[in-house]
Design a protein around this nucleic acid. Structure first.
Lengths: 229, 229
DNA sequence: TGCCGAAAAGTCATCTAACAACTTTGTTGA
DNA sequence: TCAACAAAGTTGTTAGATGACTTTTCGGCA
């Protein structure tokens, strides 16, 4: 086994064995090097790997710590990379997004609070009123986030955030017929919101699935330009 | 911005900009250091991060390459870390697993081939016949894998694999009443298989959801021991 | 000519040593 | 008691040298 792998598994085991729990501080690098039998360079490479995966966290001048170990943080680490997937491999993800958005919408319909509902309605009103594509995109994202949040499952919310971060890069509304598409999209949003307001999970689920399927179809059909961001 | 971050974003951008595509080789480390303006140590830390995330791949003596950039590989990188999540943060994941297994089972019922069906039935027969908990666990995993595979969405299959890798660490069948639990579990599997054989997506979906919910309930109730693996 | 093996070049892997940058702790002095 | 400063501790970065593995090149031989 290579030195970096040794260090990686050693660090990982310190957490899985329960020797270190969430938020706790690792020994300094020099001690870890002795214990794991690798040089500082190799150890640091292993630390970076776990840090990229959202498991640990280095603070300059202070130390290296176990993260909070929340599922949503670990899933969120995917957002660093989903943007690199080619469009071809993306359609499977849309199938997942459709299923998960439908579930989140259904849960939201069952659980949403009055304040969250008011926020959601405010976003959708703003979205319908504007012609600015940037503002519309932003409201779109926040609208879906609000629903996922109301669903009450942070892990699901993180996963949907990852999928959406990829979809958002495709600027459907910038297409020649973008205004027409936005109008249809607004109708889809409104159907979801109405179902949630009516506290009807089945209707919310169906509306959300239809909305995602629609976006998916546009993506396949027009293959819109990628945003620079 | 720190040196490692510079290198990380530089490498990432080489891919997102299209300068390098899947399977293509990066320039040697020395050139990358010059171009990105960082030392070799920092560059290597950035490379390790992207490699942990499944985006690039270093081959000793040969070079550093962009990965195949398949969604399933990038999602699969989570399996390195989900095992570290505390049990408390795991129940949200079971909700997701329930939804996704249900979808996969429905898709399998709609799409499965005769050969895949035969394999699935072989696994379930073997599982029902044995008392060996290790063999049963292995068949259990492969049974669910076969269904996910038959569902035809590699991304979904990878995601379910991640969730299952975590569940499998809990050895429900090792509990005092493990034999009883296994019998119930076998019935759940049989219900899923029957629905798939009958090409009935709705029934398959319901059976799969029920099965996952059952496992979830056992986990909450008994909090079984973690495997050492 | 064609092929095989050895040598050479190219590349990543690892280690050591040193210094820089930042944070935390301890101490001093008013 | 508190503020400012000093010291110690820790991670961040760089440089150079050596090892290990892969690929290419080239010479020898049938």
């Amino acid at each position: 086994m290579s030195a970096v792998d040794d260090a990686f598994h050693g660090l990982r085991q310190m957490i899985s064995s329960g020797r270190l729990v969430a938020e706790q501080k690792f020994p300094p690098e020099s001690e870890l090097c002795d214990e794991l039998g690798v040089s500082r360079g190799s150890l640091r490479e292993a630390v970076r790997m776990l840090s990229a995966l959202g498991v640990i966290e280095s603070r300059h001048g202070s130390g290296t710590y176990v993260s909070q170990l929340r599922a949503e943080d670990i899933i969120g680490s995917l957002s660093l990379t989903v943007g690199l997937l080619p469009l071809s491999g993306l359609l499977d993800m849309y199938e997942l997004r459709r299923v998960l958005e439908a579930h989140a919408a259904a849960q939201a319909a069952a659980r949403i609070t009055d304040e969250a509902e008011a926020e959601m309605l405010g976003l959708i009103a703003q979205m319908e009123a504007t012609d600015d594509t940037d503002l519309a995109s932003s409201c779109d994202a926040r609208f879906h986030e609000a629903i996922a949040h109301a669903g009450g499952n942070p892990t699901l919310m993180a996963l949907l955030g990852v999928f959406r971060s990829r979809s958002r890069a495709y600027q459907v509304f910038e297409l020649p017929n973008g205004a027409e598409l936005k109008r249809i999209s607004d109708l889809g949003h409104r159907a979801i919101a109405d179902a949630i307001v009516a506290r009807d999970p089945a209707a919310a689920s169906a509306a959300a699935a239809a909305h995602v399927a629609q976006t998916d179809a546009w993506l396949r059909l027009y293959q819109p330009p990628l945003s620079e961001k």
